[in-house]
Amino acid sequence: MYSYIARRLAFGALTVIGVSIMVFAVMRILPGDPLVAIFGPEGFTKLSEQERAGYMAALGLSDPLWVQYLAWVKDIVRGDFGHSFFRSESVADMILRRGPLTAEIALISVVLSWLVGIPVAIVSALRPNTISDSLVRFISILFIAVPGFWVGMLIVLALLFWFGYRAPMAGASLLADPVANLQLVVGPAIVLGLGQAAYIARMGRSSLLEVIREDYVRTARAKGLNNRLVIALHALPNALLPVITLSGVLLGLVLAGSIPVERAFGTPGLGYAMFTAVSERDVFVMQNLVFVYAVVFVLLNIVVDVTIALLDPRIRYR
């Protein structure tokens, strides 16, 4: 088991290095000129040749690329994520301040997706091809198709329209002001949670249908165990393994999906910071945020893999 974890971590480290090179390549080497990104195409043409050179030197952009890359990696290792062009707060502080809110949203949404998705999957799989099953399947297909940020906008609009209610704008931490914090988090978490629940219900259903046909389930039934216990003790635990893997994949959906969803709700989380960085063409903040998101995603995938290995010895010994 430990060797599996060690191997997985080593691969994770390699992936993080690869990811850092890729982020750097995308943000710095791609044909787009960073000054164009910062000043906009019009602003860029107004700069004189000298000004351009001055900005490039000040930002360290005239060094050879590998020097720039190493400087960036060194900064990150020291925990220095740089500053925004437009704000005084450092990116590291911003991540620490806004990150918890997005983490909370992600966590609640995952819990919610299981609470909704699994019961639906069970009901659907126990009575396959009935009206309720078809209905559930269509609803889950619908939920996969609906863009979460649009649902978010509709919710905000409906609350405003009928109740004149709007979630507080300012960030509030869970410990200092739990009520305000909850109002901020609930909306995005529900939207993202239901989006994942649709996938989980779909996967859970097909996985359960497969497992129910297995010999050990028939044996459990044959020895006279009642149906509920057969499902709860024999079928479900085995059917959940692919669902856990899927849940890990869906975390990517949550991390990315929270960006437009937070914009729709106006939630002051990390996703909103990402939106701000993109709309202000703040290349360096964007570079660091993309890197942070990718590293979080890699780590979460390792956690999921290790969890699966703990639950399923077949994977551990492979």
């Binding site: 890729m22 995308v26 791609l30 195409p41 990315a256 960006i259 998101y293």
Partner: peptide, 23 residues
């Protein structure tokens, strides 16, 4: 390995970064 690196980014985030870098 390269494909793994590409898949280490959530789709939308990678698309955002590339779209922003290219203008």
């Amino acid at each position: 390995r390269l494909i793994e690196f590409l898949q280490s980014f959530p789709d939308l985030i990678l698309a955002m970064a590339i779209a922003m870098a290219l203008g």
